[in-house]
Design a protein around this nucleic acid. Sequence first.
DNA 1: CACCTGACGATATAATATAACATTTTCTCG
DNA 2: CGAGAAAATGTTATATTATATCGTCAGGTG
Lengths: 174, 174
Amino acid sequence: MTTKRRQPVFPKTGHDHDHCVTTALAAAESVCAAAGERLTPIRKRVLELVWASHRPIGAYAILDRLKEDGRSAAPPTVYRALEFLLGRGLIHRIESLNAFVGCPHPGESHLVQFLICRSCGMTAEIDDRRLGDAIGRSAAEQGFAIQSRVVELSGICSACQGARPRGHGAHAAR
Amino acid sequence: MTTKRRQPVFPKTGHDHDHCVTTALAAAESVCAAAGERLTPIRKRVLELVWASHRPIGAYAILDRLKEDGRSAAPPTVYRALEFLLGRGLIHRIESLNAFVGCPHPGESHLVQFLICRSCGMTAEIDDRRLGDAIGRSAAEQGFAIQSRVVELSGICSACQGARPRGHGAHAAR
DNA sequence: CACCTGACGATATAATATAACATTTTCTCG
DNA sequence: CGAGAAAATGTTATATTATATCGTCAGGTG
């Protein structure tokens, strides 16, 4: 279900990122409480690690951080937590990167689109109703019943276009 | 660059698939000839295997078929051929499946969208200009310069909705 | 407390993809 | 044609991503 249009969402370079994290964790607590699910310490920590930046992070990068915590951890530890968080709509998987990013507005529509900057690695989640509608119409013309969408646009964000255009490589933590 | 709208494209169940393959191989010869590139036996065979059906096929499934040919083959054999074919626009990679599918109209726009049926595994490539335009507008509003797109819609195709709605599992060859 | 369920630990392995270097084939040009 | 360069392929090893399986533990419920 497509909801209202959303505002531009590439986070500004100097923004208060602690606030993003705090907000995300609080929202997660509330989503889980409402659903009668447990946001266990591992799940919470994985969510926090995903939110460490606005760049998608790979499962094994998360695993490494967990190990640095001194915690016992193996791949299933991470994948189970990620699966839980995905299921609650607290994070998204970026298919074209095999990586994960925090969802800035859990509980709302997840028929969204991602903009992924190849220069700074930052990801923006947008929910453009016109785009959603166009997708819906296009599928409907084929009699196709959409169950899930992957819409990932890679390129260069506004800020990086402003900076001098020397490539300095993609930045996604993996 | 988005081109004109295209027609419905889920292949019909009884269609002459040999014709698809023949056409695809001929188109490939012509694309390569025009570009001064070599469609070597391995590349041609991999393309043929990708075109074995309209279902995405994984690299290791291709590898297994190559081995059945009696040919010496290792992962790089397949990945190199796939990379070549991707580069010439002869196949597409389906990110959400880690698999590959033949491109039915090489040489044209590759800013396309895929419909992937979870029931029969078939994939349709569509190029809907309104959708393309909506994507372009949405990105432009953010000042984002798109370099590549991934638009993959998973669901149930028209034919499978018509059939009795028992799930019989996804079908992509992997 | 006894039981049940969900979460986690631990080990192993599957599935996907690439690095590095040797060898062979093909192309180009004298 | 034949030498040298370039492209393609062979081969081995390894990196990266993801899941299966089974045993154990923690927390709720009757």
